[in-house]
């Protein structure tokens, strides 16, 4: 395990397309559910324990070597909103390009071949971690952290929120994020023996509905 490789993968500037997505924050801002740092924190906490907990487990399972096609199907089944499935595949395809250029690996090539228009992003993320010599904990941490850092960055742009406040929100969530990542790895290890049904299936109805509404807007800053 290389700690430096983890930093490369977790860097917000890793060129994998995330900058164009708000993780549901744009819809929540418009609906008046995020207005300041306190409501951003509540939004991120909700996301951490639902969508992010699920993607972290998928990523950890992929990093452990669970069959990525089965994981991709599991991700589809856990993502009711078609708009979110489309976004997840787009981001998966973008991450795949960056990953293959950064850490060339036959398993990445095989997944790209199987899903030329993109597999679900957390599945690609887990395989990327594998290709980078990282473990399931690393993959789970990256996915869970992305799940909250994406909305926090987006809200800085959307509301002009003080960037120091947004970063402090992330720092306050860190202990919870540690637990979510650990649970994700435990679930991924169970999936090794019991299959993908052992992975959490926690979707957040408001995020799903918000994503569908957002996809229909003619004017928006973020792709999702």
């Amino acid at each position: 395990m290389s700690r430096a490789a983890l930093l490369v993968l977790a860097d917000g500037r890793f060129p994998a397309g995330g900058h164009a997505h708000s993780g549901g924050a744009e819809a929540a801002v418009k609906a008046g559910r995020i207005t300041d740092a306190a409501s951003l924190e509540e939004f991120c906490r909700g996301r951490l324990h639902t969508g992010a907990a699920m993607t972290a487990a998928l990523a950890a399972a992929a990093a452990l070597g669970v069959d990525p096609t089965g994981l991709d199907r599991a991700a589809d089944a856990r993502t009711p909103s078609p708009a979110l499935r489309v976004a997840a595949r787009k981001l998966g395809r973008q991450l795949m390009r960056a990953a293959r250029a950064t850490w060339p690996h036959p398993e990445l090539d095989a997944l790209a071949q199987r899903f030329p228009k993109g597999a679900h992003q957390p599945v690609v993320l887990g395989l990327t971690a594998r290709a980078a010599g990282l473990g399931p904990e690393d993959a789970a941490y990256c996915s869970a952290y992305e799940g909250v850092s994406g909305p926090a960055t987006a809200v800085v742009r959307l509301l002009g929120l003080d960037p120091f406040d947004a970063t402090a929100v992330l720092a306050r969530l860190a202990p919870e994020l540690d637990r979510v990542a650990q649970d994700a790895v435990d679930a991924a290890r169970r999936a090794m023996t019991d299959g993908v049904d052992a992975l959490p299936a926690r979707s957040a109805p408001l995020l799903e509905i918000g994503a569908e509404v957002h996809a229909g807007w003619p004017v928006r800053l973020f792709a999702s």
């Binding site: 060129p15 164009a20 742009r157 928006r220 973020f222």
Partner: peptide, 19 residues
Amino acid sequence: ETGACPHTAIRDDISANLE
């Protein structure tokens, strides 16, 4: 779609445009 950052999409993170 460029997420409020048009130069990022053409310079720093070009994957969506390449696609």
